Computed example of a mutant assay.
Amino acid sequence: MQKVVPFILTGSVVYVYNVARYYLPSLPDLSPIASYSFGLITLIVAFMMGNQCMEKLNHPEYTINAGLASVCTLFMSVMPTDENVDSVSALMSNLGASGIAVGMIIGLMVSIIFHIWGRLRFLKDSSIPDFLVSWINTILPFVICLALGMVLFQALAVDLFQVVLGMLQPVTSYAQTLPGFILICFIPAFFYTLGVSSWLWDAVTMPIFLAGIQANIDAVAAGQPALNIVTYEATFTMAFVTIGGMCATLGLNLLMCVSKSKQLKTMGRVFLIPSIFNINEPVMFGAPVVFNPILMLPAWINAIIGPVYVWVLMSTGLLNIPSKLIHVGQIPAPFSSMLVTEDFRAVIWWIIYLAINVMVWYPFFKVYEKSKLADEQAA
Results as ranks from 00 to 15, higher is better:
residue 234 A to F: 05
residue 241 V to Y: 00
residue 271 F to G: 01
residue 262 K to N: 11
residue 254 L to K: 14
residue 265 K to S: 15
residue 242 T to E: 11
residue 242 T to K: 05
residue 238 M to C: 11
residue 236 F to G: 06
residue 248 A to L: 05
residue 236 F to Q: 14
residue 245 G to Q: 14
residue 273 I to L: 13
residue 270 V to F: 01
residue 277 F to I: 04
residue 261 S to Q: 08
residue 256 M to F: 03
residue 269 R to K: 09
residue 253 N to G: 12
residue 275 S to D: 05
residue 275 S to T: 10
residue 265 K to H: 13
residue 264 L to G: 05
residue 237 T to W: 13
residue 235 T to Q: 00
residue 264 L to Q: 09
residue 271 F to Y: 06
residue 261 S to L: 06
residue 266 T to N: 09
residue 276 I to T: 13
residue 257 C to Q: 00
residue 241 V to G: 04
residue 280 N to F: 07
residue 257 C to D: 05
residue 250 L to A: 02
residue 257 C to G: 08
residue 265 K to N: 14
residue 262 K to C: 03
residue 255 L to P: 07
residue 262 K to P: 06
residue 248 A to C: 15
residue 240 F to L: 14
residue 255 L to W: 02
residue 243 I to Y: 01
residue 250 L to F: 11
residue 237 T to K: 12
residue 272 L to D: 08
residue 273 I to M: 12
residue 238 M to F: 09
residue 261 S to D: 06
residue 256 M to S: 00
residue 238 M to Q: 15
residue 236 F to R: 13
residue 275 S to P: 02
residue 274 P to R: 11
residue 240 F to S: 09
residue 246 M to G: 06
residue 261 S to R: 03
residue 267 M to D: 07
residue 262 K to G: 11
residue 248 A to I: 07
residue 254 L to N: 13
residue 253 N to M: 12
residue 273 I to A: 13
residue 270 V to L: 10
residue 244 G to A: 01
residue 248 A to E: 12
residue 275 S to L: 02
residue 240 F to A: 05
residue 246 M to P: 00
residue 279 I to V: 15
residue 248 A to M: 13
residue 250 L to Q: 04
residue 248 A to W: 00
residue 265 K to T: 13
residue 269 R to I: 01
residue 272 L to H: 03
residue 236 F to E: 14
residue 265 K to D: 11
residue 247 C to H: 04
residue 256 M to Y: 01
residue 277 F to W: 01
residue 242 T to G: 08
residue 244 G to S: 00
residue 271 F to R: 04
residue 234 A to C: 09
residue 255 L to E: 01
residue 240 F to P: 06
